[in-house]
């Protein structure tokens, strides 16, 4: 034990375990079906909302693109979002109609899109009373990514809420705010939002530290 008041406070604290890339085989651990492994009794995957979940049912899709403009075909994405009322549901339970957490991955072939089946989240009120526009928190893991990248997905048709969102407004460049806004499409009677995540270069997605 260290003698109180004799060492800097940083020395009284442990250091976080260092991060390493999730690597190209992340699917073995976190997306078994993508790796070609049999699934277990329950898996954490991309259906956050069952048909009976309350709210507007949507599909959220996108790609991940590297600094050369090439598709990142081995990315794993984690999503964390509020329910339709703007509340997070920490208790993950696949028996429930909605879960706040999900995972998805880009595909090794074809258009390499990731997909989430979910409901549109409600606006979330911060403890200071400011209202954040509806959003989905995303974390991106892949080979070549040494520590996961954290971003948010916002919705194109929430123009007024987006305009006053304290987090969007914390991004100094209005041009860069646009990198977080998913475009709305309607196809086969489904509402779909699309956001391409650009890791580097022109149109580089805003990534957060928090």
């Amino acid at each position: 034990m260290k003698q109180p008041n004799t060492v800097p406070s940083s020395e009284l604290m442990l250091r976080e375990t260092a991060s390493q890339t999730a690597g190209p085989y992340v699917h073995i651990g976190l997306a078994l079906d993508v790796a070609g492994l049999p699934e277990r009794e329950e898996e954490i995957w991309n259906q956050l909302a069952k048909p009976e979940a309350e709210g507007e049912h949507i599909e959220v899709v996108g790609t991940v693109i590297d600094g050369n403009g090439d598709l990142v075909r081995d990315a794993l994405i984690e999503a964390w979002q509020a329910n339709a009322k703007g509340e997070y549901q920490p208790e993950f339970d696949l028996q429930k109609p909605f879960n706040s957490f999900g995972r998805t991955a880009t595909t090794a072939s074809g258009d390499s899109e990731w997909t989430l089946h979910t409901i549109k989240p409600g606006a979330v009120t911060r403890s200071d009373g400011k209202v954040m526009a509806p959003h989905i928190n995303l974390a991106i893991f892949a080979r070549g990514i040494n520590i996961h990248l954290q971003t948010r997905l916002y919705f194109e048709d929430e123009t007024r809420a987006n305009a006053v969102c304290p987090v969007l407004n914390a991004i100094e460049s209005p041009v860069r705010r646009q990198t977080l806004i998913a475009k709305r499409e309607e196809a086969d009677g489904k509402i779909r939002y699309r956001l391409n995540i650009r890791l580097q270069g022109e149109g580089e997605t805003v990534f957060f530290d928090f």
Binding site: G67, D70, G144, R176, L199, Q200, T205, V206
Partner: peptide
């Protein structure tokens, strides 16, 4: 990591 790291 070269092409997969943000520049901003």
């Amino acid at each position: 990591s070269v092409a997969r790291s943000p520049r901003q």
